[in-house]
């Protein structure tokens, strides 16, 4: 039985709902040794900022119970090198490219989108308003409804390509942010970014990561992510890209049933770089075994 795995995120058409999450696949070259990127829905680049960012000093990561904390600090090559050196490789991948953008000011978001909008290879923008690991920007915006509104509005004015706002779980009501994103013209939201966490050594009494706090990811956060997707899905009519602890095809299907139109694989790429290919096989098989001819038919089929 042939299965139609394609999904639409607003005007963005994906051949299947599998996306590789920002910050977990760099700019695609390393993971392409394990994954045929032309077979998956798309890849979301490591956050790009206007100028290169060195990132945080080590130690940047630590393992926690069924999860990990990271405080990379948006280390990236910057916009100029990204266009010059990374886009040519990404152009030939045969995969949909979503460019993730991080900035320290509203003006910087706008300038980045303005410049990158001209790049045909980029099919959509994911706006990172929720990085927990940098002092300026990131979560400062993610925790301020007015700032998210302003960023979305201004960025919308610069591009007709789909805009996805990546939401933080580190606030009191994620629904408010999804509502404002929709109101200001975003095409979709992705939920969730990492949860702020920390870990201390009981003998040295020092934090295990230099930044003190980091972003928690991995299977430990899946129930939280699912609950956020559910909340948004109940309250706001906007496509949701589910992210948070997806390790296998069952997790992915669960996100779609709860309310996600597509999903991103993040931490799983570090442990099993072939995870996205295995998930592709898994969701296809699930559809075949349950006589589902179009995977989009399972979106929001939760029974509550």
């Amino acid at each position: 039985m042939s299965v139609d795995l394609s999904v639409n995120i607003g005007s963005l058409k994906l051949k299947n709902p599998i996306l590789l999450a920002s910050g977990t696949v760099g700019y695609g070259n390393e993971i392409s040794e394990f994954v045929d990127l032309s077979k998956i829905g798309g890849i979301v680049t490591k956050s790009i900022s206007l100028k290169p960012r060195k990132g945080n000093p080590p130690q940047r990561i630590v393992e926690t119970s069924s999860g990990m904390l990271n405080a990379i600090g948006l280390a990236n090559v910057g916009l100029e090198l990204f266009i010059k050196e990374k886009i040519p490789f990404l152009k030939n991948l045969g995969s949909t490219l979503i460019c993730n953008i991080a900035a320290s000011s509203i003006e910087e978001y706008v300038e980045c989108v303005d410049i990158l909008d001209k790049e045909e290879t980029i099919k959509a923008f994911e706006i990172n308003v929720s990085c927990p690991n940098v002092k300026e920007g990131g979560l400062i915006f993610g925790n301020d409804v007015k700032a998210v509104a302003k960023i979305t509005e201004k960025v919308r004015g610069k591009t007709s390509k789909p805009i996805i706002i990546k939401l933080s779980p580190n606030n009191s009501n994620i629904v408010d942010y999804a509502k404002i994103a929709k109101q200001e013209g975003a095409d979709a939201v992705s939920a969730i970014n990492t949860l702020v966490g920390t870990s201390f050594d009981i003998y040295s009494k020092k934090p295990k990561i230099k930044n003190i706090t980091g972003g928690l990811s991995g299977p430990a956060i899946k129930p939280v992510a699912l609950a956020k997707v559910l909340e948004i899905s109940k309250e706001v009519d906007i496509p949701i890209i589910g992210i948070g602890g997806i390790m296998n095809w069952k997790d992915a299907v669960e996100f779609m049933i709860v309310g996600a139109s597509a999903f991103q694989i993040g931490t799983a790429n570090f442990i099993n770089p072939k995870a996205s290919m295995e998930i592709l096989d898994g969701i296809k098989k699930y559809c075949q075994e349950n006589t589902i001819s179009k995977i989009s038919d399972i979106i929001r089929t939760r029974k509550i």
């Binding site: 910050g23 977990t24 696949v25 993971i31 990132g55 080590p58 940047r60 990561i61 790429n269 570090f270």
Partner: peptide, 15 residues
């Protein structure tokens, strides 16, 4: 160093 992936994608092991 502590690292997650081992092949350059997690950026967790800078020196």
């Amino acid at each position: 160093s502590a690292m997650a992936c081992g092949f350059g994608i997690c950026q967790g092991c800078p020196i």
